[in-house]
Amino acid sequence: MSDFTLNRYEVVLANQYFLRELVERITLEDSLDEIAYRASVRLVVTDDFQQIGIAPGQEIRVSGVPFGGSGMVYLLHPGMVWQCDSETRGQKHINVTVYDRTIYLAKSEDEYLFPAGQTSTQRLERYASDWGLELGQVADTGVALAKAVYRARPIYSMIMADLKETAVKGGDMYRPRMTPDGLGLVKLGSNETVWALEAERNVEEIRQRRSLEGAVTQVKVLGNAPVEERSPVLALVTGETDRYGTLQKVHSDPKLTDAGAARSAGEKKLCGMQETITVAGLDINTIRAGDKVKLNNIDLLVNSVRHELGAPGRMTLELAGEEYVRRRYYSD
């Protein structure tokens, strides 16, 4: 019998069809680059299932027994069938792509005008209300934002613009996340259970990447200028040019008027060597992107995770330090 017929995992279609006996493979993928949690489910098609059918737009959920626990919990819920690909080689199979309902925020566009003084939390509440999403536990970001004029663009890009401004102004980093209770907003690294990953225990492979891709060792900060005139240079901030060479970024902000503020803004853009760690090992099926984990007793954040569900299953994590995550995902 497969792992899925041993009561470890369950896939339920349209809140009434339990597909466990038909499941051959389930993977779950989560990333700070995207808002929606994604599942890929491979099903064998029997005569009985042929009568039921499956199609994009149907409600679906994935549940499982959490690592080290007992009893099923929701792993991806509420979810919807987004795509179905069938193939027949003797036996017919269907590969189903599932997203949680935040996919609507990623795929839908709109325009918004927000006054100054609102927080990312208040704006998220507005987005959710307009798009018919129930709210779950939403953290208070506590940072007042500037006036925003968002022309036609995906809703998720607006959410991230709000969250980036929150972080740039000294606030914490947050991530929207769909839960069974509704759309939530969680602070990165705030998970109650912090899993310890250790070589020769639950980690099979560790790969480290160090690169100058994305590094910035010098920042030229420009002020505002009339049309057809060169922008004035308010500050030239230099970092590790002796070590890594000159990798310059130009930062232009019409709100900057003095050299002190310009230098401060430029210093925030400096970043040296970029380092990420990829870990493969036994699956801990409740780890999500944005969670904190300990790798050999060092605190790191999860940039992305891929769960290959099973008993025990496998997972692949990309990890990085907080400063890297702030620069890569929450810099303006």
Rank of each mutant, 00 (worst) to 15 (best):
Y330T: 08
G64Y: 06
F18Y: 13
M178Y: 09
V11A: 03
A280N: 12
R288N: 09
A262S: 02
A106F: 01
T217S: 08
C271P: 00
V233Y: 01
A144L: 12
M1S: 14
A161T: 14
L234Y: 03
N297L: 13
T5R: 14
D100F: 03
D3L: 03
I52E: 04
V250P: 04
Y329R: 13
V62I: 15
I52L: 10
D30A: 01
P56A: 02
A289T: 04
P232G: 03
A161N: 10
N15R: 15
G182T: 08
H93C: 11
V81F: 00
L6D: 08
V138E: 01
D85E: 15
P66M: 06
G260S: 05
L197G: 00
K255V: 13
S63W: 08
T121E: 14
I35T: 10
A225G: 08
K164V: 07
T278D: 10
M173Q: 05
W82M: 02
G189S: 04
A39D: 06
I155V: 15
S63A: 13
N296H: 05
D253G: 04
E59S: 06
D33N: 10
D140I: 12
A265H: 05
M315K: 01
V216A: 04
L247G: 00
S40A: 08
R306D: 03
L212S: 06
L76K: 02
I277D: 01
I35A: 09
R288D: 05
H307L: 06
M160K: 10
A199T: 14
V45I: 15
L145K: 07
L163K: 09
E275D: 02
